[in-house]
Design a binder for these strands. Structure first.
Length: 519
DNA sequence: GGACGGTGAAACTTCAGGTTGCCTC
DNA sequence: GAAGTTTCACCGTCC
């Protein structure tokens, strides 16, 4: 059935016209674009032309406040989102803080928000259908080929969000945007009437293969080259490529590499292979053996270097797992290189010269380490966004990876008998988790105390467990509120009752001015 | 005359996303 | 390769 949809052309922006039409129908829409920046910019363009009215308006105002207050301190991104939300429009991508992501998703489901401009995150692993799906961008930047058409599979994934049968809608509409007639034809042929691509096995990619080879040996599923080949011959990869010789070559190479790293060892007759103690742990940690080896080598160098928090941060920043790293602007290059020179006596990874092919990545690892460094020195999300162009959601993702890599380093250090590093790693992990300076560590161990409360206590000269024991309950209560004050006292072994809190005259309970208690 | 603000063109940037360990309130 | 952001020169306005 061929049917033409008539949409009033009020503006030059096609997406805007379709959105206005959708809103007039009292329906919702998703707009898929190819970058986080585009998602934000498109949402802003739409929001500028949409004026909500009636009861929805108040709800949106409230929602906007909620968005703005989601973080410790609102960032530029928070403000942008809050402003869009007032018009019932939102953007959604992996750079959003998880709280805001949730707010956007929930309120779209409930119908408060009418439009979301999103990157592909929204199309995967998230059930968020809409009457209309607008696929604005069918091209996306790919390193080698410039702007390239996205896979048909992905287009189908987008369109699959159109229509909400659970809500009684009988159909949905998926709309692509084309600028020219030839492009339109192309889209019709390739996407609308096209066939999805075949699925390709990724097994032959070395980091993946070496992880699996080690794991098969570690769990004692395979104990020789023959048994390994026997396993891989039955995989989808072998089925697809029918090239067992090539696979055999790669596996041989990987076995040699794992042996060099000391993750596997052969029996004396050279017929059976098993994982070493370290090899077992590497496999359990799901680490790429290459990364594990790199981390161990870095830590071995620790004896000749002055290890500090930056050393560890740079070490993990230069792993494959942490990529893509923060990009370095032309204008920043000198600054980052200067920092690199200044910190050179602390750097554990082998320093590269500017003639190395990987030098650029190396410089990026320094910038990434500087970002982590600022975070553990209490920079807030806004400062990180301004200084490093990294959004709150991306900060979280990087911190999680960093913690995993540091945990892995800790485990590897233990197995390699490098106990000297354990303390420093443990400290950095806690500091990363909280984004706090070293001086706050004793306080952060307490329940209910994060960077903000710890800093408050510290400023009021309460700096460790002893200080909390000595501190006046009323003063503590004034700083952090009653419940937390009592909980802190309890944690240091003083079970006090609420009556012990003396409230200064004329003041109500809760968080009071601290002036009175300052010495 | 100079501070200020608005405007538009040019220069510069940046480009989707994600699983993995382990423990604990 | 293209969209989005930042920077900067230019101009008008106001004090």
């Amino acid at each position: 059935m061929k049917k033409t949809l008539k949409i009033e052309q009020r503006y030059a922006n096609s997406v805007l016209n379709i959105i206005l039409d959708t809103l007039a129908l009292k329906k919702q829409a998703l707009v898929f674009v190819n970058s986080k920046n585009s998602a934000e910019a498109e949402a802003e363009r739409l929001a500028a032309k949409v004026r909500p009215e009636g009861e929805g308006k108040a709800a949106l105002e409230e929602l906007s406040e909620q968005v703005l207050g989601a973080l410790e301190k609102p960032t530029k991104q928070c403000k942008r989102l809050a402003l869009c939300v007032k018009s019932g429009i939102a953007f959604h991508h992996a750079g959003l803080h998880s709280k805001q992501r949730e707010i956007v998703e929930d309120n779209f489901r409930e119908g408060t928000l009418k439009v979301i401009c999103a990157t592909p995150t929204l199309a995967y692993g998230l059930n968020l259908p809409a009457f209309r799906v607008i696929v604005r961008d069918l091209k996306r930047f790919s390193g080698q080929r410039g702007m390239a058409w996205i896979p048909v599979l992905e287009y189908l994934q987008f369109c699959g969000r159109a229509g909400r049968p659970d809500y009684g809608e009988e159909y949905g509409e998926a709309i692509c945007i084309s600028e020219t007639d030839s492009e339109k034809e192309n889209i019709m042929d390739h996407y609308v009437n096209g066939e999805p691509e075949d699925i390709l096995s990724k097994l032959a990619v070395e980091p993946i293969l070496r992880t699996y080879v080690l794991s098969l040996i570690a769990i004692e599923y395979c104990n020789s080259e023959e048994t390994l080949m026997g396993f891989f011959e039955k995989t989808f990869y072998a089925h697809q490529f029918q090239n067992t010789e090539r696979l055999e070559e790669i596996i041989e190479k990987i076995l040699r590499y794992l042996e060099d790293c000391g993750f596997i060892q052969w029996s004396e007759d050279g017929k059976r292979v098993e994982a070493t103690l370290t090899g077992h742990r590497v496999s359990q940690l799901y680490l790429d053996p290459y990364t594990a080896n790199y981390l161990i080598n870095c830590m071995k160098r620790a004896a000749e270097k002055m290890v500090n928090d930056f050393s560890l941060l740079q070490m993990i920043s230069y792993t494959l797992e942490l990529r893509p790293l923060l990009s370095v602007r032309v204008s920043e290059y000198e600054l980052v290189e200067a920092a690199m020179a200044e910190k050179s006596s602390h750097i554990l990874s082998i320093e590269l010269s500017m003639y190395d092919t990987d030098y650029e990545e190396y410089v990026k690892s320094i910038k990434t380490a500087l970002f982590f460094y600022d975070w553990i020195n209490e920079a807030d999300e806004e400062q990180l966004l301004e200084g490093y162009n990294i959004r709150p959601g991306e900060v979280r993702a990087k911190l999680e990876l960093a913690d995993w890599l540091l945990y892995a380093s800790e485990e590897l250090a233990k197995l390699s008998k490098m106990h000297g590093l354990l303390k420093e790693i443990a400290k950095v992990r806690i500091r990363l988790r909280h984004g706090a300076k070293e001086e706050l560590l004793p306080l952060l161990r307490l329940q209910g105390i994060g960077r903000v409360r710890a800093r408050k206590l510290y400023q009021n000269k309460i700096r460790d467990v002893e200080d909390i024991k000595k501190a006046d309950l009323s003063a503590l209560s004034a700083m952090l509120g009653r419940a937390i004050a009592l909980s802190l006292k309890k944690q240091v072994g003083q079970d006090l009752s609420e009556e012990a809190i003396v409230v200064p005259k004329g003041k109500r309970k809760g968080q009071l001015s601290l002036e009175k208690y300052r010495k």
